[in-house]
Amino acid sequence: MKLYLSLLLCSFSFAGLAQRPVRDSLKKNDKPTITLATLYTSNVNYYGQTTEERLPYLLAYGGLAFKSGFSISASGYKILNADGANSGADLTAGFDFDLSKNLSAGLSYTRSFFPENSFFLQSQNLNMFSGKLGYDFNWLTAGLNADYSPGQEGALFLSFDVKKSIELIAFGQSDYISIEPAFEVIGSTQQITSTEEVPPSNSNRGTGIIKLPVRRLNNNPEYRTVESTSFGVLSYNLKMPVAYSTRKFMVEAAYQASLISRDTEASFKNPRSFFSLGLYYVL
């Protein structure tokens, strides 16, 4: 069985880390498939966003996929260079299905658990509903993914990616080295906070007298905070995984470069790079 891994795991999209967890690597089989994995990543990554301080982490994963397309999985992760309760966990249930020969789709729900002092950026989005569409052009694969976190702010993330799987060296039918370069654009809703001057009150209101507005200097202006929601490009991501695969085992090293859009309110917009090393075993 050929192992297929979405590098969005490297993006750590676990409901955000998520950005689509390792369950994307589970293929429909004649019997239930168990996948176990462990992953090291050089920095936390939330849709291309990260903190100023580098925070490498370890992730442990276990997933069960059925022939029907239904899958369940659990992930646990730990930041390596931070003291205290800087860990987290995910529980995910999903269903993948084919719409046509080349078009596939999937739906999932992820519940995340974080301590109050977690350093993970996604710790504010504990519930995530996700959907995906993928089309295989044979020479190229394109995907559209949506993640929605309900709540007071209602965060929505949309991503579009194109990728190409290239087999470099084949030692056998299920024993080979491959690469899967990918480019991804991510958009998201963004909460914008601005300050505006409060206009003077109209003392003639209710008198029946209509007066044209007169511009006058306000020597003691009052200000108020205004919050609004907009949708725009969040980040651009270039990914390059190199994997050695066998029928039941895969080891993958991956590099990702991320550029945050200048139009966002993200705190850190400098280009970021990430390295990950993963080990996967299918039962």
Rank of each mutant, 00 (worst) to 15 (best):
E184R: 12
L107E: 04
V214R: 00
T195Y: 07
A65H: 08
R205T: 14
S73K: 05
L99W: 02
S267A: 15
L140C: 02
N270Y: 15
L26F: 07
D24R: 15
Y109I: 05
Y148K: 00
K269N: 13
L217G: 08
M250L: 14
S6W: 03
D147Y: 01
Y77A: 10
K28F: 01
T225G: 09
E252N: 14
Q191N: 07
Y176H: 11
R272D: 07
F120E: 02
F231E: 03
D98F: 01
F113W: 08
G84D: 02
I72S: 07
G106S: 13
L277V: 14
F160H: 03
T35P: 11
Y223H: 11
N270L: 15
L26E: 08
V22Y: 06
F14I: 10
Y40Q: 05
S6M: 12
Q19S: 11
N220I: 13
N45S: 12
Y4E: 13
Y280P: 12
F274K: 02
L158C: 07
Q49F: 09
S100N: 04
K269T: 14
S123E: 09
G134R: 04
I34D: 00
Y244W: 12
G69F: 14
R224W: 00
A37P: 08
N127C: 04
S276M: 11
S261R: 11
A182D: 05
R216V: 02
F183Y: 06
F114E: 01
Q256T: 15
M250K: 06
G16L: 12
L55H: 08
L7I: 10
E196R: 10
T110Y: 15
S42H: 13
G187F: 06
Q190F: 13
N204E: 01
G208H: 00
L5W: 05
P199R: 08
S267E: 15
Y281D: 00
A266R: 15
G69P: 14
S203K: 03
K78V: 04
N45H: 14
L99K: 02
G63P: 10
K269C: 14
I72C: 11
Y40M: 04
A60T: 00
E184T: 15
V282L: 14
M240P: 02
T207I: 01
E167F: 11
S100Y: 02
V162Y: 01
G154K: 12
R215E: 05
L26K: 09
N102Y: 08
F274H: 10
V282W: 12
K269A: 14
K211F: 00
A82W: 04
R111L: 10
S276P: 01
F120P: 11
K211N: 02
G143P: 00
V198S: 04
L259W: 11
L121M: 08
R215L: 02
Q122W: 06
A253I: 09
G278V: 09
V162A: 04
S178F: 08
V233C: 14
E53M: 07
G187Y: 06
A146H: 03
G69Q: 10
P200Q: 03
K78T: 05
L7A: 10
K67C: 06
Y244H: 12
